Computed example of a mutant assay.
Amino acid sequence: MSRTAASRVINNAPHVSRAKRDAVHKAIRELGYTPSRTARALATQRTGVVAFALSGDDPALFADPFFAQVIVGISAALEETELHLLLCLAASDRGQGRFKNLLRTRGVDGLMVMALRGDDPLDRIVAESGLPAVYGGRPLHGEPSWYVDSDNRGGARIATEHLIGTGHTRIAAITGLPDTEVGQSRQRGFAEAMALAGLRPYAVETGDFTEASGAAAMTALLAARPDLDAVFAANDNMAAGALRVLRDRGRRVPQDVAVIGFDDLAIASHTQPRLTTVHQPVQALGREMARMLIALLGDEKPSPLILPTRLVVRDST
């Protein structure tokens, strides 16, 4: 409740004389009245806090360009409300225990959840809490009632079709984590495009969406298939790692090996050469998650949302 809201309550109160109203308004102005959040929570059974929880135990996750952009989007949506944001890591036993306690004591009004892997305990903790929850990306098993996701499968397909359309046939892939829905969807999109063109994946290595894993995967691909002519990497971080290895090995990009990524993060514009990639609206992903949760807290029933992806052609293909 703001100072304006407090004045509105007084104005609407029955059987209060004009003189008393004027006296209260004067006191509000002079004292700079602000309400107690604790008292308000007791009265409304709401804390005014929502949580964004990641299934990870490394604080550096929040510095990852992808998650940082998601948080920017969430914050932008919450700025239009009086809700506050709490960031939670819930992978270790201690982290999960703290998170369970937070939910059990109703320390937050609702949840946004991301980066789930396989049979993730975080998914079960959220379900058992009974709190309104919005997922960023679908879990690998089952489909929640409320989620915001990007067209990962379709985006991977258009990326691979672009490589094929520019004359490449010996196309390898650096896929994401196999126990994530996003990792599996992007691999399926790649495989579908290859199959429709009558091609088979030339080689496949798995990464974990980090630049270091992309470099390691590219090293393994060159050892197994030194004559490959293109690489689809399931995100920009891994593509950047692949570009570094190719440069170190004296392979020209795109003349010898074309490289394409996924996400269209800031890094894609700063690699050498600049990275062709699939754009997904990362900030919008966070923004729409927050808006969906706000709607749930307002007793609305929003529908799940799939955001479109599109190809951004730069210099690496």
Results as ranks from 00 to 15, higher is better:
178 P>C: 08
167 G>C: 03
218 M>N: 06
86 L>D: 11
205 E>Y: 08
231 V>T: 00
135 Y>E: 11
195 A>Q: 13
103 L>P: 06
92 S>V: 03
3 R>F: 13
48 G>C: 11
99 F>A: 02
105 T>H: 12
159 A>K: 01
264 D>C: 06
40 R>T: 11
192 E>W: 04
11 N>C: 04
197 A>R: 05
207 G>C: 14
207 G>R: 13
77 A>D: 05
137 G>T: 00
101 N>G: 14
26 K>S: 14
13 A>H: 15
113 V>S: 02
126 V>T: 05
284 A>N: 13
87 L>E: 03
159 A>I: 03
108 V>A: 09
77 A>Y: 01
264 D>I: 04
204 V>H: 04
100 K>T: 11
263 D>L: 01
19 A>T: 14
137 G>R: 13
148 V>Y: 06
135 Y>R: 08
12 N>T: 08
85 L>C: 03
262 F>W: 00
250 G>W: 02
185 S>E: 14
163 L>F: 03
195 A>R: 10
60 A>W: 04
11 N>V: 02
241 G>A: 05
62 F>C: 12
221 L>R: 00
101 N>Y: 13
247 R>P: 09
2 S>N: 02
134 V>R: 10
10 I>N: 14
120 D>K: 03
302 P>R: 12
225 R>K: 09
83 L>A: 01
166 T>F: 01
82 E>W: 03
273 P>G: 02
266 A>T: 13
263 D>H: 08
55 S>D: 04
304 P>N: 10
180 T>H: 10
191 A>S: 11
60 A>M: 10
51 A>P: 08
158 I>L: 03
304 P>F: 09
63 A>C: 07
